[in-house]
Design a protein around this nucleic acid. Structure first.
Lengths: 352, 352
DNA sequence: TTGTATGCGTTATCAC
DNA sequence: GTGATAACGCATACAA
């Protein structure tokens, strides 16, 4: 490897400005104890030479890299993308760099990235999706998280149940799903089916629970064949919907546990010639961009992306600054009514 | 900031193993000149202590961080996301880390990220979208790129015209757009409109040129009102399409310069009650995931994401390894015929 | 206010 | 085959 990197260092500046490296450092870091004359002299040389401090050397000395590692399951789900965007912005605002790692829901890769980033001295982790969302994490996973969180803070977004030493920022998924199911009920729907992604994920199981609870409260029968679980992909949403549409007694509404599934479900219904929402209502969860772009547009719960991300970043930063930090923060979601859901005759919808 | 980081260092291992730090380093780096006995002894301690070398210190010494910075315009366009994914995978395979920065098409942010990453000692840059796509880059931009590329290699993906010191990996956009226009012509379409994003972008202007060239070759009139330019958003695609549909003499086909625009165009047509492709054919460019997910699915040109990304990463790595590297690499795209385009009576489509 | 010396964790050079 | 030492670029404690 040819060594062609040849950077200007603090010593070059010092020599040219006729001062010591320490003084240059003071100027660069805006320390008070530098005379105006010296400061100006040094600043002039810095500008002339386009000097930029070496962050690697800084990190080695300071022990802090001003970098946060964000491990995300996939960037194919716009939900994750929006969180990344917001987190990146939040980081930039406070002079941090966000290191994004894509795990592809591959446990090994997730583990590898965790260590790679740790070796790069990230100051903390934000975990989004992936195995941390398991409802019942394995002993091995817990051990790994303990190993990491012993060194730097870990913040989960919408996940991380059962990791005692970590932090968690999450949408009030139960409350949010409650809202949308109650909305469908208030629209007069009595035959409501449920399409979910993988079970045993925190975000899935909570919603199934809320769905059942609401039906029971309305004294409606919970039918097993109306609860169809696949995985969180559009193709799976289609398959689940096809299953539902082929039932002897199809429902009038289908609630999906995320938007990707809902859009898959809409595709399936559209292909079979159904009119949405006239023939069947469909709802999602997340409010990804596509929810407003598909035809018809999707009724869904909007997660507060910005607050989720900002809170996660802030938690890392506050923690390493030694501040007192809440172990768990819950954030509300908002019902967004669009074209994919209809009100049945005689009903008057209630929005909470 | 409380200093709670307290890592195990090579000296800790050395002390515990009863050897010198130099020897531990040799073991860690798999150097040959270490006796088997010593090696095993050291490895045992490393495993026991869960020692992981500090990459920051390594980078400071080696001058190489094994990190590549990827500046991307946005992660909301799935095209960019796929490139990021592929690049990240390519990096991981060769022990590199990909540092993703999101510029939001904000020139200032792009510039800032460039310097931030440089200070973090990235070994090279990959630039995806953003101002580098300008057909005629400003003097100021060229100067900035020169400043950077003097220090580390810069590789543009689908852009970077006019930066003499940089590298470029690009889809053969002209050839690819040629294919899809010729396909539409071979389907019998004679009235073909064009929807584009911002002009003065390399990727836009090339396609306009190819569009005009093909019409002229067929002795078809190039009508100004059939060339509608907006920006690369779905909403803009809708607006452009509405403009086209309100013409006295609407076309039978609309070619769009990317998939996002095409999906916007389809939305607009669907809302007005048009049947696609019976009433009007629509084509895109890129083959993002949504192209296969929208109803109807979109006929488009598939860019070779994997090759684009792998080639870009390889270019950086080869260059810093001192190898001879091609300044420009062009990669073919592939026509993907789906539901959104129809063949007019009597025509027989030709696929190149 | 400024300079000197030292350490951050690692690797390379040079002895032994 | 192994160890001592210097250097990477920066920032701080301490001295002046």
């Amino acid at each position: 490897m040819s060594l062609y990197k040849d950077h200007i260092t603090i010593y070059d500046i010092a020599r040219r400005a006729g001062v010591s490296a320490a003084t240059v450092s003071r100027v660069v870091n805006n320390r008070a104890n530098v005379s105006i004359a010296t400061r100006q002299k040094v600043e002039k040389v810095i500008a002339e030479q386009h000097y930029e401090p070496n962050e690697i050397a800084r990190t080695l000395h300071n022990r802090y890299s001003n970098t946060i590692g964000l491990l995300v399951q996939s960037l194919n789900n716009q939900f994750f993308v929006r969180i990344c965007n917001e987190a990146e912005e939040a980081c930039e605002k406070i002079g941090y760099t966000l290191l994004i790692g894509i795990t592809n829901n591959n446990f090994q890769k997730e583990s590898k990235l965790l260590h790679t980033f740790l070796k790069k001295q990230v100051d903390g982790f934000i975990l989004l999706g992936g195995r941390a969302n398991e409802y019942h994490p394995s002993r091995e996973l817990i051990d790994e998280m303990d190993f990491i969180s012993y060194q730097v803070p870990i913040v989960f977004i919408n996940g991380g149940v059962g990791f005692h030493n970590c932090f968690s920022v999450k949408t009030d998924e139960a409350g949010a799903f409650d809202k949308i199911i109650q909305y469908l009920l208030s629209c007069g729907h009595r035959k409501i089916a449920l399409i979910t992604g993988q079970q045993h994920l925190w975000t899935t199981d909570e919603k199934i629970r809320v769905y059942k609870k609401n039906l029971k409260k309305q004294r409606l029968k919970v039918r097993d064949e109306w609860i169809v679980s696949g995985e969180y992909t559009m193709a799976s949403g289609e398959q689940c919907m096809n299953r539902i549409l082929s039932l002897k007694e199809p429902p009038t509404a289908v609630a999906c546990t995320n938007d990707i599934l809902a859009i898959g479900a809409m595709r399936a219904a559209l292909y079979k010639g159904y009119n949405i929402p006239r023939d069947i209502s469909i709802t999602g969860f997340d409010d990804i961009f596509m929810a407003a772009e598909f035809v018809p547009t999707l009724t869904t719960m909007r997660q507060n992306y910005s607050r989720l991300a900002v809170q996660a970043v802030q938690t890392v930063v506050d923690y390493i600054a030694g501040k007192e930090v809440a172990r768990e923060v819950t954030i509300d979601a908002e019902l967004v009514i669009r074209e994919s859901s209809a009100t049945l005759p005689g009903a008057k919808p209630v929005v909470h």
